[in-house]
Design a protein around this nucleic acid. Structure first.
Length: 257
DNA sequence: AGAACCGCCTGCTTGC
DNA sequence: TGCAAGCAGGCGGTTC
């Protein structure tokens, strides 16, 4: 599913392809998506990422805010065939961008163009002092906190599991019990893992594809996610799976304390 | 107020 | 083999 590295990959590809283009028209195929046809005629100024949201900045101080949720894809197409599960099409002079989304969780809306990026993104700008004051003492599991957008933007289930494995911290630890050194380790390993995943154009465990419908390469780098019963790359012990907040957590109980 | 839970969705996997 | 139930999970909304 698209998390920070996948959305960043899409934004970079979209910026190269679509910045400066005029939107000829926009076609909605799913009644769950409302009120976005008014972007007809607008020129795309920039494409940016805010957490897991793709912001397509337009020339009238508004932005199209696209969130892919679970199975959403944005695909650049030079031909005009419609694939199954296409929910939205943005048409340019010679090509289109399709939102394809089998489970229909993705959202598209028009917002006033946001100016300041959130200070919760470890790969862009992270307000560590605000985090330590407002989030670090919470009584939730560190795994749940990593996935909470109020604390960290862009981290979902796959990268939360991978970050905790690299930091050698158990996903069941209550956030408030972590030492300053452990927080530092989490910040450092999170940045390392997210940046590497961007370099690999994301993790294609199941659905993820980039703008050109290509899988990423980061699935070969995973230490724990989706590897239940397999050997931990650090210690050789078996990876275990459990449930936290209704979501699967993969971890190595020998390495992660 | 903070933590836990629910519902939205549908393709895929599992079990009988 | 076929079909139904279960599972996957980001996140806004609701409940505890």
């Amino acid at each position: 599913m698209p998390e920070l590295p996948e959305v960043e990959t899409l934004c970079r590809q979209l910026r190269t392809r679509a910045a400066g283009l005029k939107i000829k028209f926009l076609t909605v195929y799913d009644a769950k998506i409302n009120g976005v046809e008014v972007v007809r005629g607008r020129i795309i100024q920039d494409i940016r990422r805010s957490g897991k949201t793709i912001l397509i900045d337009l020339d009238d101080a508004t932005s199209l805010a696209v969130h892919l949720r679970m199975t959403g894809r944005l695909l650049w197409k030079d031909n005009k065939t419609i694939s199954p599960h296409t929910r939205l099409r943005i048409s340019f002079e010679t090509a289109v961008i399709d939102l394809v989304d089998a489970r229909r969780f993705a959202t598209v809306k028009i917002v006033a163009t946001p100016q300041a990026p959130p200070a919760t993104d470890l790969t862009v700008h992270f307000d560590e002092q605000a985090f330590m004051e407002r989030q670090a003492k919470r009584k939730v599991n560190i795994k749940v906190l990593l996935m909470d957008a109020k604390a960290f933007s862009g981290i979902g289930n796959i990268y939360a599991c991978e970050i905790l494995h690299r930091a050698r911290i158990s996903p069941t630890r209550q956030a408030a019990t972590l030492s300053r050194d452990e927080w530092k380790k989490i910040f450092r390993e999170a940045r390392r893992i997210l940046k590497k995943a961007i370099d690999k154009r994301g993790t294609s465990i199941s659905d993820w594809r980039d703008l050109y419908n290509r899988p990423g390469e980061n699935q070969h780098e995973l230490a724990v996610y989706g590897r239940e019963g397999k050997a931990c790359p650090s210690c050789g012990g078996p990876i275990e799976r459990m449930k936290q907040g209704g979501r699967g957590t993969f971890h190595c109980p020998l390495c992660q304390k």
